[in-house]
C-alpha cells in the first residue's frame, strides 16, 4: 500500500473519533451535577435572567436538537460566548491557542532534541560514569513535580539572578503586529529584534520546565531501546559486511531504536497537554491552560467545552502525525 492511500485511510479513521469527541464535549454541560444554569448564574436568583440564559444555551430544547444545533454552530465557527469575559469563545481562543501551541511546540522540540541524543549517548557509553550520571539526573528530573521545578526556576532565574522574567508572554512595552500568533516568529516578521529577544526570554523557562519530565523519561527509553537494538544479530551482520561502527550506530541502530520512542513521544504529548494547565498557571502564561482554569473557576461552561474540544483535537492531530511518521521510520507498518 502506498503512502497516499495510507494517509487517506488514517484520515477516514479519524472521523468517528472526532465525532465521538464532539458528543462527549457536548454532553459535558449536561454531566455537571445539578442545574448548569443555576450554577452559572451562581447566587443571582433573578428568574428572568435564569430563563433567558436557559433559552440562550438551548437547554429547553430536546437533546438531539441541541446536539445538532451545537454541531451546526461549530461548523460555522461559532463556539458560543463567555459569560465571564463577555466575548465570543472563538475570540478568546484566537488569543490563547497560539500561546499554548507555541509553548507546546517549543517544549516538544526541546524534548526531542535533548532526550534522543542523550539516550543514544548513554547507550553507547553503557555502564560508564557518563551513562550512570545522565541516567541518575534523568531519574531525578522525572521524580520532581514540574510545578515545584517551575517555582524553583522562577525563584532562581527570575528572583536571584534576574536573568529571565517571572511571568507572561511579553513585556508590556512590546507591541508588535500578530501574524502567526507565535511571538518568536511574529517578532522576526515585524523585524523587531528587541521583541524577539523578549519573547525568547519569556518562553524559555516555561518551555524547558514543561519539557523536563518528558525529556527525562524519553532519554531513558531511548537508551533502553538502543541497547536492545545493539544486541540484535543484524548489528553484527552489518559490522561483518565492513560497515563502519559510526554508520551502524547512526544509520541503522538509531532508526530502529526510534520506533518505540516515537510511540512514547505521542503519549508524552498527551501528558504535556495536561502539564500545560499547571505550567501556564505557574508562569501566568496567557494560553488555554490559564484560560481553562479561569473558566472552570467562573463556571464559564461554554468556554470549558470549547477548550476541551480544542485539546482533544490537538491530541488527535498528533496521533495522526505520529502514524505518518511511523510509516517513514518502519516500513512494516505501511505494508501490513
Amino acid at each position: 500500500m502506498g503512502l497516499g492511500s495510507y494517509i487517506i485511510r488514517r484520515l477516514l479513521q479519524m472521523i468517528p473519533a472526532v465525532l465521538g469527541v464532539t458528543v462527549i464535549v457536548f454532553l459535558l454541560i449536561h454531566l455537571i451535577p445539578g442545574d448548569p444554569v443555576a450554577m452559572m448564574l451562581a447566587g443571582e436568583a433573578d428568574p428572568q435572567a435564569y430563563d433567558e440564559l436557559r433559552t440562550r444555551l438551548g437547554l429547553d430544547r430536546p437533546l438531539l436538537e441541541q446536539y445538532l444545533s451545537y454541531m451546526a454552530n461549530l461548523a460555522r465557527g461559532d463556539m458560543g460566548s463567555s459569560l465571564h469575559y463577555g466575548l465570543p469563545t472563538t475570540e478568546l481562543l484566537a488569543r490563547a491557542f497560539p500561546a499554548t501551541l507555541e509553548l507546546t511546540f517549543l517544549a516538544m522540540i526541546i524534548m526531542v532534541v535533548f532526550s534522543i541524543p542523550l539516550g543514544v549517548f548513554a547507550a553507547m557509553k553503557r555502564d560508564t560514569m557518563a551513562d550512570h550520571g545522565s541516567m541518575i539526573v534523568s531519574m531525578l528530573m522525572y521524580s520532581v513535580p514540574s510545578f515545584w521545578l517551575g517555582i524553583m526556576a522562577i525563584l532562581f532565574f527570575a528572583g536571584v539572578l534576574g536573568w529571565l522574567p517571572a511571568f507572561g508572554r511579553a513585556s508590556p512595552t512590546i507591541d508588535i503586529q500578530l501574524v502567526t500568533g507565535f511571538l518568536t516568529i511574529d517578532a522576526i516578521i515585524a523585524g523587531n529584534f528587541a521583541a524577539w529577544v523578549d519573547a525568547w526570554k519569556h518562553i524559555l523557562m516555561p518551555a524547558v520546565i514543561l519539557a523536563a519530565t518528558g525529556t527525562a523519561v524519553n532519554a531513558r527509553l531511548t537508551r533502553a531501546s538502543m541497547l536492545e537494538v545493539l544486541r540484535q544479530d543484524y548489528i553484527k551482520a552489518l559490522l561483518s559486511k565492513g560497515v563502519p561502527m559510526r554508520t551502524v550506530l547512526f544509520k541503522h541502530a538509531v532508526r530502529n531504536a526510534l520506533i518505540p520512542v516515537v510511540t512514547f513521544i505521542t503519549i508524552q504529548f498527551g501528558q504535556m497537554l495536561s502539564g500545560i494547565v499547571i505550567i501556564e498557571n505557574v508562569f501566568s502564561w496567557p494560553g488555554m491552560g490559564t484560560l481553562v482554569v479561569t473558566a472552570v473557576g467562573s463556571r464559564d461552561f461554554q468556554v470549558v467545552q470549547s477548550l476541551v474540544l480544542v485539546f482533544a483535537l490537538m491530541r488527535l492531530s498528533v496521533n495522526f502525525l505520529t502514524d505518518i511518521a511511523y510509516s517513514f521510520i518502519d516500513p512494516r507498518i505501511r505494508y501490513d
Binding site: 553484527k236 551482520a237 552489518l238 563502519p244 512494516r332
Partner: peptide, 25 residues
Amino acid sequence: LKEIRGKQMSMIFQDPMTSLDPVFT
C-alpha cells in the same frame, strides 16, 4: 578491520529472520 570485513572475509548467521535490518530494503 573494515577493509577486511565484508571485502575479504564475510559471514552469514544462524537466524535469517533477525540478521537483516528490518527498516531497509
